[in-house]
Design a protein around this nucleic acid. Structure first.
Lengths: 338, 338
DNA sequence: TTGTAGGCGTTATCAG
DNA sequence: CTGATAACGCCTACAA
């Protein structure tokens, strides 16, 4: 079950040793490292000097044992090398560090038992909060976290779970907007490029776009050529553009899909963007802004998501707030005719 | 100093409660969760049932207190949203999880005090090992880690520090090979595109390429237009290609630089690659394989780096091994004439 | 302001 | 095989 073994290693310096060296009691050392504790400047200085000499650092684990709070926040994420996830993890990590938290990253394959394993770690290490960036934890497991006094934060999930915090973005209105943008650009036949992954965000966008296009009387098709990623965008283009009835506008539920689609459209079908084909993405990953793409897309509010997470983590025992749905913003670049 | 506050939260379930519910002693609970402990199947079953009902999970923090080992490995990394770092973190995280470790990510800006702060966390949480993926920790801080019984692993750093483990790649031979590839492609005037960041890996490649080119009697220049990244590649191209004496071959010390350089060369200077210009990168990030680039580059052995880290972390108290220098491999694609 | 005692949740040790 | 007991490193009463 666990791989920790019984053998002990080099003893690390403890408050005891510092106390001895400084010629004070253990509690004095403790106080010297506690903000606002009543300790004379003189003793504190002596303690700090001794600590420095010995290389002493407060053991947050032991401290957490007493306080029932560890300062650890777990981030559960799949495919963290993908540009969007990587950016999100980067921002969230930085933000949480700024408020004195430390993050544990649990890399899941997105599959059920993988998520369960991650969840177990979260509990083993008594994290103060768990943030689900990817993966759909069964409600039962989320409840276990909740029961153990953790805060649970769901990002871009399908629906809230009682007792957990919920942060998402306005997928529907973005998809609707995308549809209108293509319509205004004069597109007649549109397609939505999605994936087989069934991730909540992309799925919501796909659905909303389909509905919007139908409502506007546009001819619309959908392509799901594989899991979310560049290569799937390429495959989609090969399938969709090989037909006699090529679309002249596509909404890709993810930038990575859009970039793959664009490359295949231009290089393998000699299409010109945005003249022959308009493309809209979603996420606004760094690559979307590259000279070779200049993709028009929707920007996910990474900063605000991180701020929100930080707020939730910071105010200890507030009741879970209502779901937060953040707006996205169109980033006009060059893949849609204005 | 610390942001942990004194107020306690909901009590999490402890072994005590499980023991009461199961009608056994605390020790029995402990044994039920320890591999190979002598406990009757019957008691174990009763304990496990009670634990499940209560949602009990062993507290690794308390366990770590006793064992002097936490199972935590710290990863110190800067710019983790960049493709190469993101991939490395992903692979390492996955590999460490596979051996039962859990990773704490410390996001530093790469600056001195930022690294120091990260280091403090590493010590506060009594990580078993610290992996420096980015940043150049002063030897004194590394020693503090060492003294506290931690393992220290330096990735792609300039030089080893006594007592720490050292993993790097063959920068020199790759740079030399790149030089030869350009020469064989018939390039007359070459350039090396680097950055002002002063990161050890890129710097080593820049230096080695410069020397190799000179040794081969090639006319060579260097461009450092900013920090390592796509945009700097673009800037470099604008500077380097605007001169009357354009190079016909460039070695970019990083794929991201190469991609930016290529885009600017093609779109702003109407150059054809590899006909007018050969380009070689380094890292083999996913984007390098995209249809629009097909960049010839050198593949960093991510898998082996991760395996190495895992090995070091696993064998507890072995002496630090000799520096490990891993080979890179050329990935021939389409930006260099064969 | 300071030191002493008790306890946080766990496991190793030792008696039974 | 099982239960009591003493650590682990720390913090917070409480008394001095």
């Amino acid at each position: 079950m666990s791989t920790l073994k019984t053998k002990s290693r080099k003893a690390s310096v403890s408050a005891d040793k510092v106390a001895k060296l400084a010629g004070v009691s253990r509690s004095a050392v403790s106080r010297a490292f506690t903000d606002g504790a009543s300790v004379s400047p003189e003793t504190r200085a002596r303690v700090l000097a001794a600590a420095d000499q010995l290389g002493y650092h407060v053991n947050h684990l032991a401290r957490g044992l007493l306080w029932h709070r560890t300062g650890i926040v777990c981030l559960i994420v799949a495919e963290m090398q993908a540009p969007f996830q990587a950016s999100l993890v980067e921002v969230v990590t930085r933000r949480l560090q700024a408020i004195g938290k430390v993050v544990m990253v649990l890399n899941t394959s997105g599959e059920q038992d993988s998520v369960e394993g991650a969840l177990r770690q979260t509990l083993n290490y008594r994290a103060d909060a768990t943030v689900f960036i990817s993966g759909t934890p069964p409600a039962s497991l989320v409840n276990t976290c909740l029961e153990n006094g953790q805060r649970v934060i769901l990002i871009n999930r399908a629906d809230p779970i009682e007792g957990s915090e919920f942060i998402s973005v306005e997928n529907q209105s973005a998809a609707l907007e995308a549809c209108l943008m293509l319509k205004r650009a004069g597109c007649q036949r549109v397609a939505v490029v999605s994936s087989t992954a069934g991730t909540p965000g992309p799925e919501a966008r796909e659905k909303a776009f389909l509905e919007a296009a139908a409502a506007h009387g546009m001819q619309v098709s959908v392509s799901r050529a594989g899991r979310t990623g560049y290569q799937t965008g390429v495959e989609s283009a090969r399938q969709v553009l090989a037909t006699s009835q090529r679309p002249d506008g596509v909404f890709c539920v993810t930038d990575l899909l859009a970039l793959g689609f664009m490359d295949a459209a231009r290089l393998e079908f000699r299409m010109s963007i945005p003249d022959d084909l308009c493309v809209i993405g979603f996420d606004d990953i760094p690559e979307a802004g590259w000279l070779g793409y200049e993709l028009t897309t929707f920007c996910q509010p990474l900063r605000e998501i991180a701020d929100h997470i930080a707020n939730i983590v910071e105010k200890e025992d507030a009741e879970p707030g209502p779901p937060t749905i953040l707006p996205t913003q169109v980033v006009w670049r060059k893949t849609v005719r204005p």
